[in-house]
């Protein structure tokens, strides 16, 4: 396979951003409801919830789900006033 420079950069940056301990996708799912509420209300994140942010920065699938979840909750909050 041939990587375009931007793919090579993305792969290398992802590699260099690797931490010894990383949250799994299931652990992220378990904490993401609390995380999104903190984000929507602008409250500070605990260390545990900062791990969710770190996972979302690395995991495209979970980040995509978080985006949809946040959109849904924001729309509902808007509708319900």
């Amino acid at each position: 396979m041939t990587l375009r420079p931007e793919q090579a950069k993305a792969l290398l940056e992802r590699v260099m951003a690797t931490r010894d301990q990383e949250m799994t996708c299931d652990a992220c799912l378990a904490d993401v409801a609390e995380f999104v509420e903190m984000q929507l209300t602008g409250k500070p994140l605990s260390d545990a919830l900062q791990a969710v942010q770190a996972h979302l920065d690395r995991c495209h699938d979970c980040a995509e789900e978080y985006h949809v979840l946040r959109q849904a909750l924001e729309a509902l909050a808007e509708e319900d006033g």
């Binding site: 509420e37 699938d61 979840l69």
Partner: peptide, 16 residues
């Protein structure tokens, strides 16, 4: 979290 938020995470996961 609110139960409704937790429930939404599950629905979103299944749909995605």
């Amino acid at each position: 979290s609110r139960l409704t938020t937790w429930a939404t995470t599950i629905a979103v996961r299944l749909a995605m």
